[in-house]
């Protein structure tokens, strides 16, 4: 028989107060919820900003499993009747895999009230079976002491890099980085191509290749290339560059290029299981403006909740959601193997 500890009971009562009559005693009967996070600053933010609020509202402890989406989806798929995770921060494509296998639950405003304040573009790609609580926007970082006039558009960046204007100081992600297939599509689309016509992107990348100091495999590696000043210009997400700038890299700057930026989304999903009620509450907490603001201050990735009020000092950095784009994820999944094969044949030579 489950017993309600004094601490959990007090937590539950506090949660009831905050949730205006929501049944926190039901939550309090569960001792923990198991959620996921990428490591480093992401995990720190989950533990520091989101978990305490969740505990305050439900009286339930949060167990954070760090790792990556490939590991988490494998864990869920291997134990579908008793999944080891209650909520998962997934990758854009692996989220579809869990949906197709019927292992995750649909999010509705009734179950996740904060969803009402989130633009549809952050849950529609997964038919409401996942919602991204933040987004990164692609652009270019550059060493402003070396590059006086930054490119303004993706075609301009690729053309100037391909002519060697920046020397062998360019860096781009390698195909071992999970977002590279999307990047290839985005570059192709910026140059007039599409998912079924990636020729413009590969032609441009082949021209840039001799000037790439390193195709990086992880975003941490990209940061190292920037901070060691081995790379003077290249592709990266806004949040990562802004975090480096705020940490003291004064030579660094970031700009988003026309016509638009690629979104980096992390769909959070409720795993079908006995703890799903709490998992919905966890997703609701992830979308809450209060911890999202703290998350933004630490990570610099943009919260999706419209009610978040950004600090004036950094508000200009935030890309409006209308300026971001992603491809059709199902079509991307279809062409990803061919993008990898082509990259291996044409770029890795």
């Amino acid at each position: 028989m489950n017993s309600i500890s004094r601490r959990a009971f007090v937590g539950g009562v506090a949660g009831a107060t905050f949730l205006s009559g929501r049944s926190s005693l039901v939550f309090a009967q569960e001792k923990t919820i198991t959620v996921t996070s990428l490591g480093g600053r992401w995990e720190q933010s989950i533990r520091t900003h989101f978990a305490p609020l969740f505990k305050k509202r439900t009286g339930v402890d949060v167990k954070v499993v760090s790792g990556g989406p490939a590991q988490w989806t494998a864990q869920i798929e291997s134990q579908p009747s008793k999944p080891p995770l209650d909520a998962v921060d997934n990758s854009e494509l692996l989220a579809l895999s869990l949906i197709d296998k019927g292992l995750v639950l649909k999010l509705t405003p009734e179950l996740v009230p904060n969803l009402r304040d989130v633009p549809a573009q952050f849950y529609e790609p997964w038919d409401s079976f996942g919602v991204s609580y933040q987004y990164g926007a692609s652009g270019i970082f550059y060493d402003k002491t070396k590059i006086k006039q930054a490119p303004q558009s993706w075609p301009e960046f690729l053309e100037r890099a391909g002519k060697g204007e920046f020397g062998r100081n360019v860096t781009l992600p390698d195909i071992s980085y999970p977002w590279t297939p999307e990047l290839v599509w985005h570059l192709a689309a910026s140059l007039g191509g599409s998912l079924d016509n990636l020729e413009p992107a590969f032609n441009a990348l082949k021209r840039v290749r001799p000037y790439v100091t390193k195709f990086w495999g992880t975003a941490i590696e990209a940061e190292r290339l920037i901070l060691s000043r081995e790379a003077e210009i290249g592709w990266l997400w806004d949040g990562r560059v802004y975090a480096m700038m705020d940490a003291g890299a004064r030579y660094l700057d970031f700009t988003r290029l026309k016509p638009n930026s690629l979104f980096s989304l992390v769909p959070a999903q409720v795993v079908k299981g006995s703890n799903s009620k709490l998992a919905y509450e966890w997703i609701n907490t992830l979308l809450d403006p209060e911890p999202l603001l703290e998350y933004y201050k630490m990570i610099q990735y943009t919260p999706v909740n419209r009610k978040v009020v950004f600090p004036q000092a950094t508000a200009a950095r935030v890309m409006p959601a209308s300026e971001g784009t992603i491809p059709s994820l199902r079509d991307l999944a279809r062409v990803t193997p061919s993008i990898i094969a082509r990259w291996n044949a044409e770029i890795r030579i």
Binding site: G68, P69, A70, A74, L93, L94, S97, D174, I175, S176, Y177, P178, T180, P181, R209, V212, K214, F215, G217, T218, E221, A333, T336, P337, I340, I347, R348, I349
Partner: peptide, 26 residues
């Protein structure tokens, strides 16, 4: 190989990683 190597020095474990995490082809 991932950090010290370049785009033309891919070794088998890196190729396995790519299949698992990029191609999602277990």
């Amino acid at each position: 190989p991932l950090l010290l190597g370049g785009s033309s020095t891919v070794m088998l474990p890196v190729a396995i990683w790519e299949q698992m995490t990029v191609a999602n082809d277990r």
